[in-house]
Design a protein around this nucleic acid. Structure first.
Lengths: 336, 336
DNA sequence: GTCATTGTTGAAAGTGCTTTCAGTTTAGCA
DNA sequence: TGCTAAACTGAAAGCACTTTCAACAATGAC
C-alpha cells in the first residue's frame, strides 16, 4: 500500500528546527523579522520535511482565501467561455484560484446567492448574465462580499453592461447601408430559463427601431423566436428561408444561432450573402473562422475587467462602485 | 455605509437559543440525536439570525472540502471546454465545487503538482492533457490525493485515454473508402508547449500506416506541421491547397484547424468536398454546425467519467486503479 | 554601571466548526 | 418508590495556521 503519510504540519517543522511555531509562521510570512540564522535553520527543516502550509488552515487564520468565484449559467457556451477566459487570465496573474459555480436553475441560483457570501470560502464573486431580486442584491452588498455583475446591474453592486439595444441598431444600420431591403430577426426572444437574463429582446428592439427610423419595417412573419438549441434554431431558420418571399437579410441574435442559419442556408442551396445576408451577435472565436459578420461585444475584455475590478476592491473595499458600459462594434466579414 | 456586520456564528445561535454550540452542530449534522423541542428552538434561532455555517471552518473540522480541482492547459479551447462540461455535470450532481487551475507553462505545472496535494484544499484532482515525470506521478500517488489523468497515463494513477493512432487509421480508411486517392495531413506536429501532451504525432502515424497498408503513400510535401493558431494553420493550408498538384483530401489533426482549412478553401474558391475533402478530429460542438466529417472522441464523456471515478474513490480509496480506453468513432458529415 | 532601545522569539489566544466523552435528566420497570 | 437504562446535552479538545503581546537578550548611550 502506498504510504498515505500525512503531510508535515508547522508543528513538525518547529520540532525539527527547535523553534516555536510562531517563528515558522514568521519565516514564511514575514521573513525580515527573523534572524538570518534562525531563518536558515527553519528553511532547512522545511526543505527536509517537504513542508507546505495547508491552504485551508491558512485561509482560516488569514480570513482570506485567494479564491474568487464565478456564478454562471451555460458555462460551456462559447460566449461564456470567452468571458471566463478573460477572468482566468486576470486572476492567474494575481495568483488567485478560479472556482466555477454552474447555475442550472432558479433554485440553484437562490441557493448559491444565499449561502456563498456567508460561507466565505471565496474572496469575491463574479455573476454572469444572471438576474436577481433586489433582496438578493442587497444581501450580497451588505454581506461585504465583493461582487461584480456582468450583463446585469444593480445600484449597490459593481456592474459591466453592454448596450444591447444599440447593438440591434448597429446591425440594422449596417444592413441598410449594404443595400438590403427586407429584414428578418431570429433569436431566443422568450427563453424558458427564468434564471438567466435575456438581452435578446433589447437587441430586437434596437434593430426594429433603427429599421423604422430609416423607413423600413420588420414584419411579424420575419420575426422568429427560437430557443437557443441548434435543432429548434434550425427549424425556425428553415421556415424563414422557406417563405415564399424570404427576407434578404437575417439578424441572428447570437453567433451560435447565426451558425445554425448558415447550415440551413447551405442545406437549402442558398448562397450567403448573395441570396441571404446574415449578421450574428457576440463575435465568439469561431465567428471569424466562418467569416460571419457580427457585433463584437468584447467578451474576453468583460471578463478581465470584472476580475480586475474585483481584485482592486478586495482589501480596499471603500472604493466607489463601478458601473461600466462596454462599447459594441460591428465587425464586417463575408456574410453581408 | 452599508452594515458590513459579520455573519452570525454558531456561538450566536447557541446564545440565542440557550443551548451549547455542540447542540447546534448536532441539529445541523445529526438531527435525530436531538430532542424535537430543542431542535425546533435551535432552528428558530437559526432562521432568525440567518445563520449559515462557514464552509471553510466546517471543512477544516471535517477534514474534507467538497471541492475538486482541474489542472488544464488551454482551458478555453473548445475541446477542453467540452471536457470541463462533462466534469461539471458530474460534480454538480454531487454538490462539489469545481476549481480550475489554468496551466500556461512548465513552471506553472510543476508548481501546481508539488503544492496542490499538500495544500489539501481540494479532495481530488483531474489532470487534462498534461504530461508529467515519474517523480511527480509518484508524489501524487503517495500523497493520497485522488487523481485522474486524461490523455496521459501512469501506472500509479487513474487514467482515461483515447487511441489516437487508431483515430488516424479510421480517417485513412474512411477517405480511401470514399474514393480519394491523394492524401495530406495538417497538424500541430511539433508544438512549442512542452508542458502539454501532444497526441498529434500518433494521429499522423496511424494515418500514415493505414494509408501504406492500403498501398497508398503520404508524401512529405503533403505533411504540414502548423501551430494551433488560426493564422499559422491558415498559412499552411494555403500552401497545401496552392500546390500545383494539391491533395484530394486533407486530414486536419483537430477540428479547429479543420475549420481554418475550410476558411482558406473558401477564400481560394475550392469547393468542399468536391475539390477537396476534409476530415477533422475531436468532434467539438461546432463541427456539427459546419458539417465537418470528424473523429468523435467523446469529450463530454471523458470529463464526466473522470469526475465519476474521482467521486467514487474519494472516501473509499482502496478501490483498484482504473485505466480506461475511450473508443473513437468516425462521424461522416458533408466534408468527405 | 545603569537605563532605554532595538531585535528576536515563544506562549497563547483566536478562527468556527465537529466530535468525543462524561454528566444530567428522563422514562421505564419492578 | 427506587433503580437502571436510554436519551439528551455541554465542556473541551482538536483542526493548522496567524498574530498579538510580553519576555528576554543584546546593544548602545549616558
Amino acid at each position: 500500500m502506498t504510504a498515505q503519510k500525512k503531510s508535515p504540519t508547522i508543528y513538525d517543522v518547529a520540532k525539527k528546527s527547535g523553534v516555536s511555531i510562531s517563528t515558522i509562521s514568521r519565516v514564511l510570512n514575514d521573513p525580515d523579522k527573523v534572524n538570518p540564522e534562525t531563518h536558515k535553520r527553519v528553511m532547512d527543516a522545511i526543505d527536509q520535511l517537504g513542508f507546505i502550509p495547508r491552504a485551508d488552515a491558512r485561509a482560516r487564520a488569514l480570513q482570506n482565501t485567494d479564491r474568487i468565484g464565478v456564478l454562471t449559467p451555460f458555462f460551456t457556451a462559447p460566449s461564456f467561455v470567452q468571458r471566463l477566459r478573460g477572468v482566468a487570465s486576470a486572476l492567474s496573474k494575481a495568483n488567485y484560484e478560479l472556482v466555477i459555480y454552474p447555475v442550472d436553475s432558479m433554485d440553484h441560483l437562490q441557493g448559491y446567492i444565499s449561502s456563498i457570501p456567508l460561507m466565505r470560502n471565496i474572496d469575491g464573486l463574479i455573476i454572469m448574465s444572471l438576474s436577481m431580486g433586489d433582496q438578493d442584491a442587497l444581501r450580497l452588498s451588505k454581506s461585504g462580499m465583493e461582487t461584480v455583475l456582468i450583463e446585469y446591474s444593480h445600484p449597490q453592486l459593481n456592474s459591466i453592461l453592454i448596450d444591447d439595444m444599440n447593438g440591434g441598431r448597429l446591425v440594422a444600420e449596417h444592413l441598410i447601408k449594404k443595400g438590403y431591403r427586407s429584414f428578418a430577426f431570429l433569436g431566443d426572444i422568450e427563453p424558458p430559463e427564468r434564471f438567466a437574463i435575456h438581452p435578446i429582446k433589447s437587441r430586437l428592439t434596437g434593430y426594429k427601431q433603427a429599421l423604422q427610423d430609416a423607413g423600413f419595417s420588420l414584419a411579424k412573419t420575419y420575426i422568429r423566436s427560437a430557443p437557443y438549441t441548434a435543432m429548434e434554431t434550425r427549424q425556425a431558420a428553415r421556415e424563414l428561408i422557406g417563405l415564399s418571399k424570404p427576407p434578404a437579410a437575417i439578424f441572428a441574435a447570437s453567433d451560435m444561432q447565426a451558425m445554425s442559419v448558415m447550415k440551413v442556408a447551405r442545406e437549402m442551396g442558398k448562397r450567403i450573402p448573395d441570396d441571404l445576408a446574415l449578421v450574428g451577435f457576440d463575435d465568439i472565436d469561431v465567428a471569424e473562422h466562418v467569416d460571419l459578420t457580427t457585433i463584437r461585444q468584447h467578451l474576453d475584455e468583460s471578463g478581465r475587467l470584472a476580475a480586475e475590478i474585483l481584485l482592486s476592491r478586495i482589501g480596499e473595499s471603500e472604493r466607489p462602485l463601478q458601473h461600466i458600459n462596454l462599447p459594441l462594434k460591428l465587425i464586417e466579414r463575408l456574410t453581408t
